[in-house]
Design a protein around this nucleic acid. Structure first.
Lengths: 148, 148
DNA sequence: TATTGTTATACTCTATAACTATA
DNA sequence: TATAGTTATAGAGTATAACAATA
């Protein structure tokens, strides 16, 4: 039994908005991870692909900071991406301690597949809301996150 | 560096509503856990207190099911609650394998403190929203969770 | 000396399976 | 045999600290 297997949140805890927020988030995270696994991608790898695509040539420290994870945590993620031929570490000639991270064409294709999946899962997540309600929810979510 | 230390979510990932949902949820969870720790309570303990208060005398299996956690996971939570004098296991005479879980007066007091904290943290979480927006967000959250 | 990336390690969380005591 | 609770254990996830290479 996993914590997010339930179809409905525990009744006595659902009164807490913070709990409900975490319950809905955990369920959506699990579903997304499950869907990503079908295309051999881990959520961390998908996150890294997104950031590297936006800023090719980042160093590992810069990538870790952009992803808000520890640099040591990033190592295994990049190992996996390289093993699957989705990204490359390139030693920088001007400072041979640093490695610039780039996507391969296969990495860009994987990113596109992941994005299509994210769109599909987003539609599923918000399936019970009207288009208006979804826009409203996403707007408020951005306010809560201090974004845009 | 923790995953949720950032003041703002990673820019390249904030476009995904699912990511944003998880980011906001993780931040609120961390803050709540930190606040609860100041009154010597763990989020799992607070969850158990809530359910037992609503349904005194539940068996451990029933409590685990109500909390949507595994029965084995519950053991340590109840151990901690008992050690702090907040809850009791009472062997049931009609079936000595079962233990009925009850709160102590101290447990009810701890629950009240936790609830006050949850209210305060909820107000902080939604501090950037108007009262109307907060109601709207909570309504949509319940729709997403399939509640009420 | 300081920094980059890496490795080793430890800690938290939680599930699975084996165990015990009762039924 | 089956069930309630417990214990042992294993896996995922992620941070901290020590390390090697380079500056």
């Amino acid at each position: 039994m996993t914590m997010v297997d339930g179809e409905r949140p525990p009744q006595q805890l659902a009164q807490y908005s913070g709990f409900l927020l975490n319950w809905v988030a955990a369920r959506s995270r699990l579903r997304f991870a499950t869907a990503l696994a079908e295309i051999d991608l881990h959520p961390r790898e998908f996150a890294a692909l997104n950031i590297v695509a936006a800023k090719p040539g980042l160093t590992q420290h810069e990538l870790a900071a952009a992803a808000e994870i520890d640099a040591s945590t990033l190592v295994a993620t990049l190992d996996a991406l390289e093993q699957h031929g989705l990204a490359e570490r390139r030693v920088m000639p001007q400072d041979r301690r640093k490695r610039a991270i780039h996507l391969t064409p296969a990495g860009e294709a994987a990113l596109r597949r992941g994005r299509a999946l994210a769109k599909r899962l987003g539609d599923e997540l918000f399936g019970t809301l009207s288009a208006d309600e979804r826009r409203q929810f996403e707007l408020l979510l951005r306010k809560l996150a201090g974004v845009g």
